[in-house]
Simulated scan of single mutants.
Amino acid sequence: MSVELQIVVVNVEYRLAPEHQFPTGLNDSYAALQWTAGMASSLRISLQKGFIVGGDSAGANLATVCAMLARDDPFFTGHPVTGQLVRQPSVIHPDACPEKYKSELCSMEEFKDGPLLTRDILMQCRALLKAPPDDPRISPLLFRSHAGVAPAFITYNGRDPLRDDARLWAKVLSEAGVKVKTECYPGVPHGFYYSFPMISLARRVDQDTREGLRWLLAGAH
């Protein structure tokens, strides 16, 4: 994908809970984003051609938060984040969900028993992280405004406890005037393309990701 699209990928080995609790992983990720911007010339990359932050699952949560933080950070004034590649994200801790959104978040109960990812596993991971549920840096849905953040390509799966997180994130961004493009993969669970990479829907995810990146890059100019 990197060769095909002629893009440089910087992968962040952020520190993990429980040894390193919130916000260590986020701070590592954001520091890497700043480092990349500062090292652009040394890396021989042009951020004017596109500067995309992306992630999958927990990484998608980090990506959305990094995009929000970068929006408000003077450090990125000359080289703003131009896109978000967000796959199967978590954007709100269930214990901090505003009342007005609760009716739109049914998938956590509907698919609480999986397959592949269950509600109990999600809650165990969140407990290990020890993040305050109402902190926007773990629940980016709670940022006061989402206007002005980079355009987002968002994908999600039809039988995923986090399905409605992605749907709601797309809705909130769109309502804030952010350009959003989404893709849904019906009937499949969280991370299915890692467990079953050869099925047709998994191959579609791969192709859609490439097209989503092209869409984000085209909007960067």
Rank of each mutant, 00 (worst) to 15 (best):
M1S: 12
V3D: 15
I7N: 12
N11L: 14
V12Q: 00
E13D: 15
R15E: 03
A17T: 09
P18A: 03
P18T: 01
Q21M: 14
Q21V: 15
P23M: 10
T24K: 11
G25T: 00
L26W: 12
N27R: 11
S29K: 03
Y30I: 07
A31T: 10
A31I: 03
G38D: 15
A40V: 01
A40F: 11
R44F: 15
I45M: 04
L47H: 02
G54A: 10
A60V: 00
A63F: 11
M68V: 12
L69Q: 14
R71K: 04
P74R: 08
F75C: 06
L85F: 11
Q88L: 08
Q88R: 08
S90R: 00
V91W: 01
H93S: 06
D95R: 04
P98Q: 07
E99P: 02
E99K: 05
S107L: 10
E109R: 09
E110A: 14
F111Y: 12
F111A: 03
K112T: 13
G114Y: 00
G114E: 07
I121D: 12
R126N: 10
R126I: 13
K130Q: 14
A131K: 04
D134C: 11
D135Q: 08
A147C: 13
V149M: 10
A152Y: 04
Y156T: 03
W169T: 01
S174F: 04
A176H: 03
A176Q: 02
K181T: 10
T182D: 02
E183L: 13
C184M: 14
Y185H: 00
P186S: 03
S195N: 08
R204I: 13
D206P: 05
Q207M: 13
T209W: 00
E211T: 09
W215L: 01
W215A: 03
G219N: 01
